[in-house]
Amino acid sequence: MSQFVYPRLPLPFAEARISEIKKTMADEGVSGVQALARAEHPRAAPVATGGRVASSEYIANVRAAVLTMIEPWHWLGAIPRSQAATFDLALGRALHEHLQIVPADAAHDETWSFLTLAVFPDVAVSRFPDMHANRLIGTARNALRRTWFRQEVLGDLLHSTDRPLGEDELVGLFERSALARNHALVRRLAVAVLAYDGPVARSEWARDLYKRVTFSTGPRLLDALSDAELDAIIYGTELTPAPRSQ
């Protein structure tokens, strides 16, 4: 399947759009924001750096398809806190499946600003009703981008159990960005966390695990290691040096 590039909304116009959305949300609630959704924005344009440009018609179809996949939540207006993690997983999967975005285009904040503020403003404010700018502008913490990126890196692992990774566990995985750019390592860490069934709270165990593995990346470069070798580090089954007297 071919991949697409999307229009980009420059920062100043993203800020202006946020003001418009906030005012509408205050006056009319989520249904008013829903009416603001558009497949285009007069100040947004795709960049000419290769890739097939998503047309307005295609973008409208993407919106419809994504809303269908998150339908159970979409009509709630606000996502209940207890369902936020499940909602994020569904949203990430829906965006990943239907946007078919070129990852290089998805690397740009302005692309996500367009998708969030023009195409899916209602989805963003339903998830983050406090409308903090970093959830609406297309930075790494953006309401849509973070879910898409997690799906991009972890894929079906996210949906493989009935006890999926929690927000703390996911944030811990991705916030150490130098470690997280080793996708094989991130996936093996996720597998380990999902499989954990020990006495300590899983998120606490995960936090210690991430720290320990991050520590090992100082003297070692783990990028070329096989899954089995990564697992040996993760589970602590690697050879360890015996204490020496010197």
Partner: peptide, 19 residues
């Protein structure tokens, strides 16, 4: 020993390597 060439792309959040 081995030599690793690493292309680290912060924007796309991915590192590419060859050994």
């Amino acid at each position: 020993l081995e030599i690793l060439a690493v292309a680290d792309c912060r924007a796309t959040g991915q590192r590419f390597i060859a050994t």
